[in-house]
Deep mutational scan, measured.
Amino acid sequence: MEVRTIKVFTTVDNINLHTQVVDMSMTYGQQFGPTYLDGADVTKIKPHNSHEGKTFYVLPNDDTLRVEAFEYYHTTDPSFLGRYMSALNHTKKWKYPQVNGLTSIKWADNNCYLATALLTLQQIELKFNPPALQDAYYRARAGEAANFCALILAYCNKTVGELGDVRETMSYLFQHANLDSCKRVLNVVCKTCGQQQTTLKGVEAVMYMGTLSYEQFKKGVQIPCTCGKQATKYLVQQESPFVMMSAPPAQYELKHGTFTCASEYTGNYQCGHYKHITSKETLYCIDGALLTKSSEYKGPITDVFYKENSYTTTIK
């Protein structure tokens, strides 16, 4: 009895394709271990004539594949690729409408935090270190965002349907971005203890939790000093293409032309909904596939993004 075979390709990165001759009487799992086709788990399936010449994702289970996976995804987590594939199996079914010149995501599976993050990423200057993220990001900007969303979920250790947080998501993504040249110098002034300067680099240099107003941050924000008295913390120097200011959701007025974009969060910790506000020729609110415009805006804002380049204080 002759062994019926077909020729397929296996890959971990969709760049390096490895030619395989597979036995049609055995499952993919018996031949390769966990195997995925377009995100779908085909591990328990036997090869079919229609699979001839198709590319299958496999887990990096030998040295060659491990090197290829690390170079593309910059992670050695053995569960990463499987999590990416199972997320992709959902995100490829989502709709990605162009809204006001940006790629958004039609609401499904509690994905409003991903839509808000995706919209924000198209408006701030950011370059990702893992080629996987950078490639998928370019495709997302062009309207094909399924891979990018699935990668975000995998890097953030999230599953489809789980509630997510924009600030946490951005923080994970910033860790995989090139923020080497970003720098922030802060000064804390206390009447009792004097003053202390701190220099922050990388992710810490672009994120701040405690106030939404970048102007206020430049002037000074009140913080408790270690001595128990009130101290003032203010920005001395900022070198970065953008800054992200966050605070627990509270009524906040966004003035046209003073910011790049913002995240609105309605609801409580267990259950809520994100919308995205962007400042173009007027203010726009993007909620999944829905767009509304207004000249002014007041609502429960939790993150505001500002364009920056270089700032030095005039406070002496």
Rank of each mutant, 00 (worst) to 15 (best):
E2S: 10
E2H: 06
V3Y: 13
R4K: 12
T5Q: 12
K7E: 14
V8S: 02
V12R: 08
D13H: 06
D13W: 15
D13A: 09
D13K: 01
D13P: 08
N14I: 11
N14V: 03
I15Y: 15
I15P: 06
H18I: 15
Q20K: 13
Q20Y: 09
V21G: 10
V21P: 10
V22N: 06
V22W: 03
D23W: 10
D23H: 14
M26V: 14
Y28H: 02
Q30A: 11
P34H: 08
Y36E: 04
Y36C: 08
L37G: 07
G39E: 11
A40W: 12
D41R: 06
V42C: 12
I45E: 13
K46H: 14
P47C: 06
P47H: 07
H48T: 14
H48F: 11
N49S: 12
N49I: 10
N49R: 11
S50P: 12
H51I: 02
E52V: 13
E52Y: 11
G53D: 13
F56C: 09
F56I: 14
Y57V: 11
V58M: 09
L59Q: 14
L59E: 13
P60D: 00
N61C: 14
N61V: 09
N61R: 11
N61M: 10
D62K: 07
T64C: 12
T64R: 11
R66N: 06
V67A: 11
E68I: 04
E68C: 01
A69K: 13
F70Q: 11
Y72H: 14
Y72F: 08
Y73A: 04
H74P: 05
H74V: 02
H74D: 05
T75P: 02
T76F: 10
T76I: 09
D77N: 04
D77Q: 04
S79T: 12
F80Y: 11
L81N: 15
L81C: 05
R83L: 08
R83V: 05
R83P: 02
Y84L: 05
Y84E: 01
S86L: 11
N89Y: 15
N89S: 09
H90C: 14
T91Y: 08
K92M: 11
K93H: 07
K95G: 08
Y96E: 12
P97I: 11
P97W: 08
P97N: 05
Q98D: 12
G101Q: 09
L102F: 05
T103C: 06
T103G: 00
T103M: 04
I105A: 04
I105M: 06
K106A: 15
K106R: 15
W107V: 04
W107M: 00
N110S: 04
Y113K: 04
L114Y: 06
L114W: 00
A115S: 10
A115H: 05
T116A: 13
A117Y: 08
L118P: 06
T120K: 01
L121R: 03
L121D: 06
Q122L: 03
L126T: 04
F128R: 05
N129W: 13
P130Y: 02
P130T: 10
P130H: 01
P131Q: 03
A132S: 05
Q134D: 06
Q134L: 03
D135W: 07
Y138S: 13
R139I: 08
A140S: 09
R141Y: 04
G143S: 03
G143P: 07
G143Q: 11
E144S: 11
E144A: 11
E144T: 04
A145G: 05
C149R: 06
A150P: 01
L151I: 00
A154D: 01
A154N: 05
A154Q: 00
Y155E: 04
Y155D: 09
C156R: 02
N157T: 01
K158P: 10
K158L: 04
T159S: 11
T159C: 13
V160C: 10
V160R: 00
E162F: 03
L163Q: 10
L163A: 03
G164H: 08
V166L: 07
V166Q: 02
E168T: 15
E168Q: 15
T169H: 11
S171G: 11
Y172K: 14
L173C: 05
F174L: 09
Q175Y: 07
Q175R: 11
A177C: 15
N178Q: 13
D180L: 06
D180Q: 14
D180P: 05
D180C: 04
S181N: 15
C182N: 08
C182A: 08
R184A: 11
R184E: 04
R184L: 07
L186K: 02
V188Y: 09
V189P: 07
K191G: 11
K191R: 13
G194S: 02
Q196C: 06
Q197W: 02
Q197E: 15
Q197T: 15
T198V: 14
L200E: 06
K201M: 10
K201Q: 10
G202T: 01
V203M: 10
V203F: 12
V203A: 13
V203S: 10
E204W: 06
E204K: 12
A205V: 01
A205Y: 06
A205C: 02
V206Y: 04
Y208M: 11
Y208A: 08
Y208Q: 08
M209N: 15
L212S: 03
S213N: 04
Y214Q: 03
E215P: 00
E215R: 01
F217A: 15
K219L: 10
K219S: 10
G220R: 03
Q222S: 10
I223A: 13
P224E: 13
T226D: 11
T226P: 13
T226N: 10
C227P: 00
G228F: 02
G228M: 07
K229V: 08
K229A: 13
K229M: 08
Q230I: 14
A231D: 01
T232H: 09
Q238L: 02
E239M: 08
P241F: 05
P241R: 08
P241H: 06
F242W: 09
V243S: 03
A247F: 00
A247P: 04
A247I: 04
P248A: 10
P249Q: 00
A250T: 14
Q251G: 09
Y252Q: 03
Y252R: 00
Y252F: 09
E253Q: 06
L254I: 02
K255C: 06
H256K: 12
F259I: 05
F259M: 06
F259E: 01
T260D: 02
A262F: 01
E264G: 01
E264K: 00
Q270A: 11
Q270F: 15
C271P: 09
G272M: 07
H273I: 00
K275N: 08
H276M: 11
H276F: 15
I277W: 15
I277Y: 01
T278R: 06
S279C: 13
S279N: 02
K280N: 09
K280L: 14
T282N: 05
L283C: 06
Y284L: 14
Y284R: 04
C285H: 10
D287K: 00
D287M: 12
D287F: 02
L290F: 12
S294Y: 13
S294A: 14
S294L: 15
S295D: 10
E296Y: 11
E296G: 08
Y297C: 03
P300K: 09
P300S: 09
P300N: 10
I301Q: 01
I301D: 09
I301H: 01
I301P: 07
D303Q: 01
D303W: 00
V304R: 03
V304K: 02
F305A: 00
K307A: 14
E308N: 04
E308S: 07
N309P: 14
N309R: 08
S310V: 15
Y311V: 02
Y311P: 09
T312V: 12
T312R: 15
T313C: 13
T313S: 14
